[in-house]
Amino acid sequence: MLYGIIAAIAALLLAAALAALLRRPGRRIGIVDRRRPQPLPLVGGAAVVLVTCLVAGVGEWTGVAPLGEGVGRLLVAGGAVSGLGLVADVWRLRARVLVAGTAVAAACVVPYEETGVAAGMLAVVWVVFVALAFRALDHADGLAGTVGVITAFGVGACAAAEVMDGLAVLLSVFAAALTGFLMHNWHPARVGLGACGSLFTGFLIASAAVFTRAGYGLGSSAAVLFALTAVASADVLLVVLSRATARRPLLRGGHDHLAHRLRRLGLTPQGATVLLAIGSFSGVLVGVLAEAGLAGEGALFWVAGAALVVVLLLLRIPVYGGSVRARRIASAQATGSLRVRNG
């Protein structure tokens, strides 16, 4: 317990310092998001990954906090996925490359001896889905990081309930590192998470959740896993339905995610992030209570129903059409990188 607290504090401070130090080098070598009025360095994810691996590795090497069976392999696979994301941040990669690379990494960490082959393959698909969902969720200042922190703590609580102490410590270290990064990513963002950090976040959270649910029934596990990632899943569902009904290419970028639509309702960048964080906390809380046996399947169905209602309501908000300038302004408002004066 004491080591976990010390490790989390160290991870928070190291990630905050490293993200600040990497800002200028990231801008110089061109690892930036050029869709904003001011290019945003996408080096925060690298800081989170490096600090998480360093602190967790020290605990494993010293024997103070062993990661446990399979967890070290999970961390290595997550590092490989983050490396693929870093390449995507520097050079444009096709979506199929990211999907294939993430799927291979997921296939290497799923505990088939506990899940079985069929359920294990479904787990691989789910890990890829969540990893890409967190990448898509990185569309507004502070959003992916905040939801990631909440979800990581929730999955860590599930791991602790299953007496997976090494996995619980890893997730607490990771959540602390994300919190340190958020010191630079909260609106107005000075550092971005990028594909490197967002893919790592989704992959680590999803894989850890699979570890905690291995050996349980498929139906109950699916419900708990959805509750833990309700916001990210709802964002994907919203975008897929929106683009399908508008007959737009699914893989083309757009300003049709959760935060974009909430901003069109008049919320501030911080307000949209806080509202989605509350939704994430609610789902995670239900998932943790269900994992601990303190909530039944009915509560999990309520989470799914609430997510579906939110998606259907936000679908009614128009996000397509208009001039190029109008679309750029809407995008800048959604990310919080531009304030538009009224009148």
Rank of each mutant, 00 (worst) to 15 (best):
G197Q: 13
G197M: 11
L199W: 04
L199M: 09
F200D: 03
T201D: 01
G202A: 11
G202Y: 02
F203D: 03
F203G: 01
F203A: 06
L204M: 15
L204A: 09
I205R: 01
I205N: 00
A206D: 00
A206F: 00
A206T: 04
A208H: 06
A209K: 06
A209D: 08
V210L: 10
V210T: 13
V210I: 14
F211E: 11
T212G: 05
R213S: 13
R213Q: 15
R213Y: 08
R213T: 14
R213L: 15
A214T: 06
A214Q: 00
A214F: 01
A214W: 03
G215M: 06
Y216I: 15
G217L: 12
G217A: 12
L218V: 14
G219I: 13
G219H: 08
S221V: 11
A222M: 15
A222T: 15
A222C: 15
A222E: 10
A223Y: 02
A223T: 09
A223M: 13
A223E: 10
A223R: 11
V224H: 00
V224D: 00
V224R: 09
L225M: 15
L225N: 05
L225R: 04
A227M: 09
L228D: 02
T229E: 08
T229N: 14
T229Y: 01
A230E: 05
V231G: 02
V231D: 04
A232K: 01
A234M: 13
A234D: 04
A234E: 05
V236G: 00
V236R: 04
L237E: 07
L238A: 03
V239L: 10
V239S: 05
V239Q: 07
V239C: 07
L241S: 08
S242W: 02
S242F: 04
S242E: 06
R243S: 10
R243I: 13
R243E: 08
A244N: 11
A244C: 13
A244T: 15
T245F: 14
T245D: 14
T245P: 06
T245G: 11
A246I: 13
A246H: 14
R247M: 11
R247P: 03
R247Q: 12
R247I: 07
R248H: 05
P249K: 12
P249E: 06
L250P: 00
L250R: 07
L250G: 03
L250H: 07
L250D: 00
L251W: 10
L251E: 02
R252G: 04
R252M: 14
R252D: 13
R252H: 14
G253A: 10
G254T: 06
G254D: 03
G254K: 05
H255P: 07
H255E: 13
H255I: 14
D256N: 11
D256T: 08
D256W: 02
D256E: 09
H257R: 10
L258W: 00
A259E: 04
H260M: 08
H260A: 03
H260F: 02
R261T: 02
R263Y: 06
R263W: 09
R264T: 06
L265D: 01
L265M: 11
L265Y: 03
G266E: 09
L267S: 04
T268E: 09
P269Y: 08
Q270W: 14
Q270I: 15
A272E: 03
A272F: 05
A272T: 13
A272H: 05
T273D: 06
T273F: 05
T273H: 04
T273E: 01
V274Y: 12
V274S: 09
V274N: 09
V274A: 14
L275Y: 04
L275K: 12
L275R: 10
L276T: 06
I278Q: 08
I278T: 10
